[in-house]
Write a protein that binds this DNA or RNA. Structure first.
Lengths: 273, 273
DNA sequence: CTGAAAGCGCTTACAG
DNA sequence: CTGAAAGCGCTTACAG
């Protein structure tokens, strides 16, 4: 096929069929293995269904998202998967209004009936983390946000705050904390690096918790306490839902919430003092 | 633009213009941060030039590469960037024969005048590694290959073998080695994990060297001796070359070799005995 | 059942 | 300078 002979022109077919058999994906940061795995599985699943994937790496920068959205609309993608987006972005609604099915994966709460969502149960995860840390004797707990200004980026923080409040605790500054909950594993791993370069030991001086359970979290030298999240299965389901909706020319209108379990490893230990 | 109003149909325009303003990228493993950064910059640079990127994650499996190639040809991409491919693949030639400019990035040696290549100088890097290890007193050195059966996948091994031979050494089995050179950082980091879980210490019992200098290699807990390679600049240049060739309707026909320097960190130490 | 024609939505070359 | 027509390469509905 590739080597020789006739290859039908998919562009002409798309024009006639009014379907590009292409999907768009908006991903905040491919450098984060969690998003890399998510897009890997989106791509793999889509290919299996005869779709091609247009990847846009947005870093949650509104102008980049806007341009990416414009490109996806111009190229008439049959559906869009969003793995993260800036706060208050008008993009999802704009896409939906044009009849393009939109699937949010690994976040949610955008409040449009027409969306598809596969979200994490962050509240529950934060409750499990608070319980774990409280049991270890931690009373000064801090939250380390991510760099990206992402929708739902505050949700883990808020979830942790509530869980602490239920135990009569209020959050403290990073510097005063005996335990730090990071927005995700990449952030947690970066914190370990920062602390250890200053001579602050993890977990002897400070406990650290991540979120995602990226492969590196299980490494002997990191061995991070974290929340397991199954990027592969979320990605597969997300693609199946968008493709089904695209083929039936409708919106997705569904909401899933994944419960993620806490994986206790060695970056959390009993509070020092 | 996205929110409302007319958006020209890029499919119709492509059909008329006989140009899709789309590029394809074949990447072996997005899970490897080196390839993730490479494709991130390919995508970013391409977007800046008005191109969209179709990503195919191949794992160097011939059947997957074949399908991906077919999809890219059907969709009439204006150029293809290959970041890794299986041994003896017929794909590059097939694409070139169809008039599609092809750029190999981070490997090379495919011997077709029409190709563009930005390759690593692996020989030189392996010489620097051999020198470093020899100076530290290592006489039993092993090579740890990658999992992927990739073209040029043997080149680092062969480069190391020659460099060892120049010092009167021949390679040893992994088990007998006092120093191990891994095909890349991911492999090196995986080795550290394996060894340490068996109680073998790095670098006290065995020294380990990587290749790529992914961000994790600079982490305090990994601190890997490795070879620095600039994925971002290679990716940018690769896209510029394919796009220029595509616009002028010609092949790329150029060869670049990057010299990468050895970064000495703490996974290499004096040989034990 | 086979084959010619119309049309997808653009762009571009040409006629008025 | 403006506007109608042709054509990119398919698919599909229709005429023969």
């Amino acid at each position: 096929m590739v080597e020789t002979g006739y290859q039908p022109n998919a562009i002409a077919r798309s024009l006639k069929a009014r379907s590009s058999t292409a999907l768009g994906i908006l991903v905040p940061d491919l450098t984060n293995p969690y998003f890399a795995e998510l897009s890997l599985w989106v791509e793999r699943t889509a290919n299996g269904l005869g779709y091609v994937v247009l990847t846009a790496h947005t870093e949650c920068v509104p102008s980049v998202e806007y341009e990416a959205g414009r490109a996806l609309v111009e190229r008439r993608v049959d559906g869009v998967i969003i793995a993260g987006i800036s706060l208050h972005s008008a993009l999802p609604k704009a896409l939906l209004d044009r009849g393009i099915p939109v699937m949010l994966v690994s976040f949610g709460g955008l409040d449009d009936e027409r969306l598809g969502e596969i979200d994490h149960d962050d509240e529950r995860a934060m409750e499990a983390i608070a319980d774990h840390l409280y049991t270890l004797g931690h009373r000064r707990v801090a939250f380390a946000p991510q760099q990206l200004r992402e929708h739902s980026g505050e949700r883990r923080r808020l979830g942790l705050m509530s869980a602490l409040a239920r135990r009569g605790l209020s959050p403290v500054e990073l510097e005063r904390a005996t335990a730090i909950v990071a927005h995700n594993d990449m952030q947690a791993i970066a914190l370990i690096n920062q602390f250890e370069r200053q001579g602050i030991r993890v977990p002897q001086d400070v406990s650290i918790v991540g979120y995602d359970d990226i492969p590196m979290a299980a490494h002997s030298r990191i061995d991070l306490t974290t929340v397991r999240s199954n990027a592969a299965s979320m990605a597969r389901r997300a693609v199946e839902l968008v493709v089904a909706a695209a083929r039936e020319d409708r919106h997705i209108c569904s909401r899933d919430v994944e419960s993620n379990s806490l994986i206790i490893r060695s970056t959390t230990a009993r509070a020092a003092q």
